[in-house]
Amino acid sequence: MSGNGNAAATAEENSPKMRVIRVGTRKSQLARIQTDSVVATLKASYPGLQFEIIAMSTTGDKILDTALSKIGEKSLFTKELEHALEKNEVDLVVHSLKDLPTVLPPGFTIGAICKRENPHDAVVFHPKFVGKTLETLPEKSVVGTSSLRRAAQLQRKFPHLEFRSIRGNLNTRLRKLDEQQEFSAIILATAGLQRMGWHNRVGQILHPEECMYAVGQGALGVEVRAKDQDILDLVGVLHDPETLLRCIAERAFLRHLEGGCSVPVAVHTAMKDGQLYLTGGVWSLDGSDSIQETMQATIHVPAQHEDGPEDDPQLVGITARNIPRGPQLAAQNLGISLANLLLSKGAKNILDVARQLNDAH
């Protein structure tokens, strides 16, 4: 009898209710805020589980004197976190989706994509230029951005401005803007500013005609071990179906173009009346040469937790077992079709030249 009692006690200790789920994140304040929001949602869904947040620095956090596009290494903000995932030191990792490459290392998958916040870019102005827009900034004003995508589009749109690289986390960039006289304004992701509670610093939100956004911008991705079915089931509740389908289309477009950090590629997606609209573009580094096109596809946005595919093969690095396969494939095909259209119009040449120029500098 006593033996059975011990077995029952052991089973209770090993039951999922007692389990601590370890969540990996970057150390920056924004990353911690984003991770806290994901953990809060998981806690609400699984009140019996405990969650421990483990923060670590990544290569991208450490190399702050070089433009991201020049470092010449993929997975700048993800490699150390993936290493911890691989060694079973954490069970899942919360990322900004735009930091996750469209091809993940073997053994990993994006197990959830959370509801997207505003994906557009924002302009934050130096205190002396508050009330201005990019259009009304004085001639030769210097605007800071760490992104080739932003610089290429904005140089084309605002030729009277000069664009220079600015690195560091959000706090560091804002301090550089406010305390030094080098920059009249800087460009940042609206979602990051909003998550930090800095709505009052948003001086201008850039519309798609001015600057399309990065693939996955404004959404959070939760990376897990691809074979860890328990954790895949656990994080599945975080999937937002519309965000998922938009981001599958965007990531398929980028992957098929073979774009990345070192080339200016941008997108804009919208879901309306059962249609998914995808606009994508590529630019030369100075913005003088560009190709942009829009395509659409009829896609039914499923309700969360309709029964999805059981075999769960990944699409552009994403596993969404609780979302039907048909809409996911339709979104992926839309991204591939748009990429093929741009490639047929000469996108590869623009991107190759951009890559060579970026590598040469």
Rank of each mutant, 00 (worst) to 15 (best):
182 E>V: 15
77 F>V: 01
241 P>M: 15
349 N>D: 12
200 N>K: 14
146 S>C: 15
215 V>R: 04
225 R>M: 12
177 L>S: 03
232 L>I: 14
68 L>D: 09
259 G>V: 04
272 K>L: 07
177 L>D: 04
37 S>R: 11
119 P>F: 10
97 L>Q: 00
260 G>D: 15
248 I>S: 08
225 R>V: 07
217 Q>S: 09
166 I>T: 06
322 N>K: 10
95 H>F: 13
250 E>A: 00
127 P>D: 06
246 R>L: 10
261 C>K: 00
330 A>M: 00
56 M>G: 06
210 E>D: 09
167 R>C: 05
346 G>D: 03
110 I>H: 04
220 L>T: 11
46 Y>G: 06
357 L>W: 00
135 E>G: 09
244 L>G: 02
306 E>P: 07
151 A>R: 11
233 D>K: 10
37 S>I: 12
269 T>I: 00
162 E>Q: 06
256 H>A: 15
189 A>P: 04
228 D>E: 15
101 P>N: 08
319 T>A: 09
270 A>H: 11
227 K>T: 07
202 V>A: 10
59 T>N: 05
59 T>I: 06
242 E>G: 04
129 F>T: 09
102 T>I: 13
335 G>R: 01
350 I>S: 04
208 P>V: 06
315 L>C: 15
340 N>L: 07
91 D>M: 03
326 G>E: 14
80 E>L: 06
70 K>P: 09
291 I>M: 13
296 Q>N: 12
320 A>R: 04
216 G>S: 12
116 R>M: 03
240 D>S: 02
123 V>I: 13
248 I>H: 00
183 F>I: 14
325 R>G: 14
58 T>K: 01
76 L>V: 13
232 L>A: 08
111 G>T: 03
126 H>V: 07
240 D>C: 13
305 H>R: 04
67 A>E: 00
154 L>G: 10
69 S>H: 12
134 L>V: 12
180 Q>K: 12
128 K>F: 07
246 R>W: 06
145 T>R: 05
338 L>I: 04
280 G>L: 04
252 A>T: 14
287 G>Y: 06
194 Q>Y: 05
67 A>Q: 08
355 R>A: 04
320 A>C: 07
336 I>W: 13
350 I>K: 00
72 G>W: 05
95 H>R: 02
240 D>T: 06
245 L>D: 00
154 L>H: 09
275 Q>N: 04
337 S>R: 14
171 N>H: 10
323 I>E: 06
149 R>N: 01
136 T>Q: 10
132 K>Y: 11
83 H>W: 14
331 A>M: 04
122 A>H: 04
214 A>F: 06
315 L>A: 07
324 P>R: 13
48 G>H: 04
200 N>A: 12
40 A>M: 14
100 L>P: 05
243 T>H: 11
188 L>Y: 01
240 D>E: 15
166 I>P: 00
250 E>Y: 01
244 L>K: 00
57 S>C: 10
147 S>H: 00
251 R>L: 01
272 K>W: 15
321 R>A: 12
200 N>I: 12
44 A>T: 12
205 I>V: 12
188 L>H: 12
348 K>R: 15
81 L>H: 11
196 M>I: 13
130 V>I: 13
60 G>I: 00
227 K>V: 02
117 E>A: 07
39 V>I: 06
80 E>F: 02
295 M>P: 02
60 G>N: 09
153 Q>F: 00
120 H>M: 12
